[in-house]
Nucleic acid binder design. Structure first.
Lengths: 135, 135, 135, 135
DNA sequence: GTGGTCTAGACCACA
DNA sequence: GTGGTCTAGACCACG
């Protein structure tokens, strides 16, 4: 699990960190209960200000991805579905539309796109058919 | 083709405009040769600062989505593939990865995701089977 | 609409601000579309660091209470229900249990408590019977 | 009476313990004179640092919920009203206001809220109609 | 040791 | 002008 940042990327550093952690969880590289590096430790490693890491960790906690405990550290949280189904789908569709629009403008063909999706989707750890119950 | 902006959306207005135009092109609502409203006209219509529209038009031209002809206005450009195939795929994969990561964290199931994709993909006008390569 | 902070209160300043704004909205003192003071302006007024105000505004935005727009300010957002019904009730019950436990330890009687609740509840602007549709 | 802590809960462990004991007393699961486990014993049982339990016990004693007798342990104290009536009501109202504000923002309706309150209030052991005043 | 809050002050992006 | 990001460094609360 090596988290990395790209300072040339216009995306804010803390956002990059948030995405990196979420990605790690989504592909199973990190699992509930795993401990993230401490704020100071990761800040040193990534050569950024501790506040930047702290902010990322806080955003992750707000999103429900992690749980922080004063005195002991930051941990990957159990997954919980808190949003309404319509809201979850709305958010996904928004991103999907943007992605497909970009794909067209990149000049990809539909088979290209379908191929890439099929190839990528297997790397992610989705829930069962429809998580209507809570864990 | 009515372009609409949502001022409550945190996405910058000029970027919303860029996305809206690209989306319109991607779904076939606008086609190469179509003329965009003038900056002033569109600014009035959308109730935004003309600078905002101008900035969006500039970004669209930089991306190769539109072409402006001095004196006659801004038009949707013919589609041209400017990036190398590996770069195009790399960019698409980046967005795709982020989308799928989000989907997992939203608690969507793989069938949910596949269903949404299948439903959405038909609305977009992709190129033929394999976009012709170029230097 | 006068937002005030109590520096002797152990509750973090930015949290106090968040609560104050939410309260103002909940009792109808502020309504969707209303503009909050700018970060710098409010910071000056409350004699705190602008970052503290910014953090509160950001938390409010994350909660969906406000919408910030770079260049124009921070506004009360339209209300939207994004959480699942079970999650909303779960969160409310948690706070309710703590409140009633405190009430017992404060030595209040059940009629006292019921009286206070009846008196207070009228000041808040609740939604209709069950907001299952979105605005 | 099994006290339980949730280490993933952002609320400090010692405070969770305080709340748990107060809750137990408030719903009648523990009564004046009941003996609490020893610090070491409870620490072992809850798998937390003895300091954490000791701190919680100290806070409970400060609040007047428990009384420790040297050598014999910690016991639930007789209930005593120590605050003036206006102060007790002030504190309750503060929490009540916050709760109702949250309820509005959660999108609960007034009937929802009243229903939850009626359902919950019966579980608590309030004092008689009017707690006797004192100096 | 851990995370959380706050201040001070710089610089950038948007309208 | 607006909000957003980042750095630097202090101090507090928890375990």
């Amino acid at each position: 699990m090596a988290l990395r940042l790209d300072p040339t990327n216009p995306e804010p550093l803390f956002q990059q960190l948030v995405s990196a952690v979420k990605h790690a969880v989504a592909v199973g590289a990190m699992a509930p209960g795993d401990r993230l590096p401490s704020v100071r430790e990761l800040a040193r490693e990534l050569v950024v200000n501790p506040n930047t890491v702290a902010r990322a960790y806080q955003a992750l906690e707000t999103e429900g991805v992690t749980r922080s405990r004063r005195g002991s550290g930051t941990f990957i949280a159990d997954r919980r579905v808190t949003l309404r189904d319509d809201e979850r789908r709305r958010r996904f569709r928004e991103g999907l539309d943007a992605l497909l629009s970009d794909a067209v403008h990149l000049g990809l063909s539909e088979p290209d796109v379908r191929g890439e999706i099929d190839e990528a989707i297997g790397r992610f750890r989705f829930d069962g058919p429809t998580a209507e119950d809570e864990g």
